[in-house]
């Protein structure tokens, strides 16, 4: 089936099977930042925004992108770079496999929450697993980036 959608502010037509999930469709389209860690809705690595909301692309059927606006890290490169630099400076990126999904969730949180507390930050990010860092570096980086005391 054909899906008319907007990806990173560009109108596109995608081709996908009825039972194809968005993560596969977007990767086939060339957006290789999208990682599939668990493919069972648990790790958050495949996070993209649908109409601005962080969403698991591994668990969203591709046809549901019809008429919606999809944002991946390729579409928010400047802001992502700004945060990624803090992440690296805090030693919070090791293999980097989880980073695109994590960064998309952090940027969504920045848009959604005003002055989040540490507790709110941790809660918002629970859906993003990382096998390497132990999370403390990530938390330091997010707090620094959002200027949370």
């Amino acid at each position: 089936m054909q899906i008319e959608t907007t990806i990173n502010n560009k109108k596109v037509t995608l081709e996908a099977a009825n039972d194809e999930f968005l993560a596969d469709t977007l990767r086939n389209y060339g957006l290789l930042s999208i990682r599939q860690g668990c493919d069972t809705s648990c790790c958050g690595l495949c996070t993209v925004w649908i109409d601005g909301k962080p969403t698991l692309s591994c668990s969203t059927l591709a046809f549901r992108a019809q008429g919606r606006s999809i944002t991946t890290i390729e579409g928010v490169q400047q802001e992502a770079k700004k945060f990624a630099e803090v992440l690296v400076a805090e030693g919070a990126e090791q293999c980097g496999f989880c980073s695109p999904g994590f960064i998309m969730t952090v940027l969504a949180m920045k848009n959604e929450l005003n002055h989040p507390t540490e507790e709110e930050i941790v809660h918002y990010l629970t859906g993003n697993l990382c096998r390497c860092t132990g999370y403390m570096g990530q938390l330091r980086a997010v707090k620094k980036y959002l200027e949370v005391k």
Partner: peptide, 12 residues
């Protein structure tokens, strides 16, 4: 519901 997996799951 707010402990079920994560925000991006609960949006689904």
């Amino acid at each position: 519901v707010n402990n079920i997996i994560g925000v991006q799951f609960r949006n689904v």
